[in-house]
């Protein structure tokens, strides 16, 4: 049986992190699984969990009246979602719904924030791991906005 600490250590998001930090973070971790098509969170809800996907796929979606539900990103094994945990107002800005059966490690946001406050080095280490994800997603978002595969008008 894999421990939460082992699960965290094996996840790319935590790869290479000081084992003591992994130990600290694992105190906030839960092993979770979701059936296919299950909502993990809804836009506007408190961002009380940060998810590290281990298996399966999760669709991040925004719905617009008259335009239906649009998936803007899917997150798979080795990837994360819910980085809203790190910045106020700690609310989900999208719906997350599984595409298929999904296993993840959920980190309790309040617990993690408290540990980060108490141990700034942990906070800094996690921030350094969240930032590249943000930058990458911002870049991806820009590229998607360019509608590169569309016909230029």
């Amino acid at each position: 049986m894999e421990t939460l600490e082992q699960m965290l250590g094996a996840h790319p998001f935590f790869a290479g992190l000081d084992p003591s930090f992994i130990g600290l973070a694992s105190g906030c971790a839960h092993d979770v699984s979701f059936a296919a098509g299950e909502f993990i969170c809804h836009e506007g809800d408190a961002a009380d969990r940060f998810y590290l996907v281990r298996e399966g796929h999760v669709a991040l979606q925004i719905s617009a009246p008259g335009r239906g539900v649009a998936t803007f990103l899917t997150v798979g094994p080795g990837e994360v979602f819910g980085i809203n945990w790190l910045a106020p107002p700690y609310r989900w800005s999208y719906d997350a719904r599984t595409v298929e059966k999904t296993h993840a490690v959920a980190l309790d946001a309040t617990c993690l924030r408290v540990k980060c406050e108490n141990e700034p080095a942990l906070g800094y280490a996690l921030t350094k791991r969240v930032l590249p994800v943000l930058i990458e997603r911002l870049h991806a978002c820009r590229t998607q906005l360019l509608d590169l595969y569309g016909v230029p008008s």
């Binding site: 669709a59 991040l60 979606q61 239906g68 595409v99």
Partner: peptide, 8 residues
């Protein structure tokens, strides 16, 4: 919602 593949 019908698409079950990757988005991104």
């Amino acid at each position: 919602v019908d698409w079950r593949g990757h988005v991104g």
